[in-house]
Design a protein around this nucleic acid. Structure first.
Length: 488
RNA sequence: GGCGCUAUCGUCUAGUGGCCUAGGACGUCGCCCUCUCAAGGCGAAAACACGGGUUCGACUCCCGUUAGCGCUACCA
């Protein structure tokens, strides 16, 4: 086999949004291209007029770009094999259907959809494999001409050879064999003149010089049809690689109903593209050692089709969450700052009110405690507004009858401190506890509750420093007024 | 129903005939650290679907069974 340059394609149909399974297919194609110094082509398969969705193509491209999967050729990116939108290539498919017709590898079929459906029903009743009965293959030249002249609508069907084995090699699955006996005479050109997937993808892959067809496993069963088409045209075949499916927790094919399937759903929920990419890369592929955290750039170096698994993989959100935490945690301060400000603005808070220094200190304090940017306001709302309520469970656990008195004392001591830092607060609290003859905990826990309204978070003294002396004292004051000991 | 693909802890997976007392990760549980919560450290529970072969020896190879999934459109 000659070594032709690697060219792969991602060929989604624009149905409105990008499915995470589609994103993984795109990713594997992209990675394979990068790894082999090849080209990554985006092709839009929009030959189903009934499914046309406004803006879907733009949306698809936007999402791919968001994920960082830049394509070398495709709509808007140029390339020598364009156009990259199938609805703009119909003449090409028509010509190729003509070639097949001439070679007697295809024939016109004038059967009505009604008749076809009746036929199918009958076959199902007799428990036969639903298959076109070739009525129109037996039409004479005259009959065909007559039908054509009278303007009868028709489709072009592929003429599947009667008794041959069709086998091909799949990079992931090895040799796969089908018998032509169970291959239907597929429609190649629909009555509206548009090609079906089978014709269009073979014609385009050939003309776009695609070297490797990397797609989902749902295409495995129709690959023999494509093989037959390559043969009929006398074209060299690309290499095939059928990827395992992404599954719901119940192991059915990943679908809506059981959770989010659109990439933009995850985007909206605050998942980082780094985490999503890392996660789906690991769903069906692994590096062979024990590393788990990968950047796109690292994946580009490590990826290989040989290490792709055969079995479907459950899309398990728990691990995705963990990866999001890992990636968010290792992001530079500046990047987190920008995301945090954006999030604050979206939540109706004015980021300017806080100042970058302040927000940076919050980021440092919360770094190990947030998996998502939204966790900043959900897990530590007290950095952005004084508590307006106090967790009843924590009151019950930590707020003693004497707490108000102790805190009041503590507030007085804090007031005496001049621009206190962590150590000063800590020393002051220890001295106060000593003078009160109570353990530090008797002050620490109520104080945490007072300034934050909750029972968890960064080290208390870190919180105090971030909030500042005045705010700390103010919050102690309101807490004393508002927290009543839980009824014993 | 037919055809095809697949089958290791709950989940993602390592494993290519002896290195396996089956390794890692997420999750779960326990302990340590500790002002809380995280993070971190240590540890635990947790799997080769089943049955036949082949072989001196099978998680690894072959066959069958079972199960799951996919395809079975003038959708992709």
């Amino acid at each position: 086999m000659t070594e032709s340059p690697v060219r792969v394609r991602f060929a989604p149909s624009p149905t409105g949004y990008l499915h995470v399974g589609g994103l993984r297919t795109a990713l594997y194609n992209y990675l394979f291209a990068k790894k082999s110094s090849g080209r990554f082509v985006l092709r839009i398969e929009d030959t189903d007029r009934g499914r046309y969705v406004e803006g879907a193509v733009q949306n698809l491209i936007k999402t791919l770009k968001w994920a960082g999967l830049d394509f070398d050729e495709g709509p808007g990116a140029g390339g020598e094999s364009g156009p990259y939108i199938q609805s703009e290539r119909t003449e090409l498919y028509r010509q190729h259907a003509e070639i097949l017709l001439e070679k007697k590898a295809a024939y016109r079929c004038f059967c009505t959809p009604d008749r076809l459906e009746q036929m199918r029903r009958e076959q199902e009743k007799q428990k036969l494999t639903p298959k076109y009965d070739r009525t129109c293959l037996r039409l004479s030249e005259d009959e065909i001409r007559e039908n054509l002249n009278s303007g009868k609508p028709f489709v072009v069907r592929m003429k599947v050879p009667d008794d041959v084995n069709v086998s091909f090699n799949d990079i992931i699955r090895g040799d796969v064999e089908f018998h032509s006996r169970q291959i239907d005479d597929q429609v190649l050109i629909k009555s509206d003149g548009y090609p079906t997937y089978h014709l269009a993808n073979v014609v385009d892959d050939h003309h776009m010089r695609i070297s490797h067809v990397i797609r989902g496993e749902e295409w495995l069963s129709s690959t023999p049809k494509h093989v037959l088409l390559y043969r009929a045209f006398g074209w060299e075949m690309p290499q095939f690689a059928h990827l395992p499916l992404l599954l719901n927790p119940d192991r059915s094919k990943l679908s809506k109903r059981q959770g989010d399937v659109a990439v933009e759903d995850y985007q909206q929920k605050g998942y980082l593209k780094e985490a999503l990419i890392n996660f789906i890369a690991l769903l069906g592929w692994n590096p062979g050692d024990e590393r788990e955290i990968f950047s796109l750039a690292e994946l580009e170096k490590e990826f290989s089709l040989e290490r792709v698994n055969k079995a479907g993989a459950v899309f398990n959100v728990e691990k995705l969450n963990w990866l999001n935490f890992q990636h968010l945690r290792s992001k530079p301060d500046g990047e987190v700052l920008a995301m945090l400000k954006e999030h604050l603005a979206k939540s109706g808070m004015d980021p300017a009110k806080f100042g970058d220094d302040y927000l940076l200190r919050v980021i440092t304090a919360m770094r190990e405690r947030v998996s998502f940017i939204k966790d900043y306001t959900e897990k530590s709302p007290y950095f952005f507004r004084a508590p307006n309520e106090y967790d009843p469970a924590i009151i019950k656990k930590r707020w003693k009858p004497q707490s108000a008195e102790y805190l009041s004392k503590l507030g007085e001591q804090f007031a005496k401190l001049a621009s206190p830092q962590k150590q000063e607060y800590e020393d002051s609290l220890h001295r106060t506890a000593e003078s009160l003859k109570v353990g530090n905990g008797e002050l620490i826990h109520p104080l945490r509750l007072a300034v934050s309204g909750m029972g968890e978070g960064p080290g208390l003294f870190d919180i105090l420093v971030i909030l500042g002396k005045e705010e700390t004292i103010r919050r102690i004051g309101s807490a004393i007024d508002r927290i009543k000991p839980a009824a014993a």
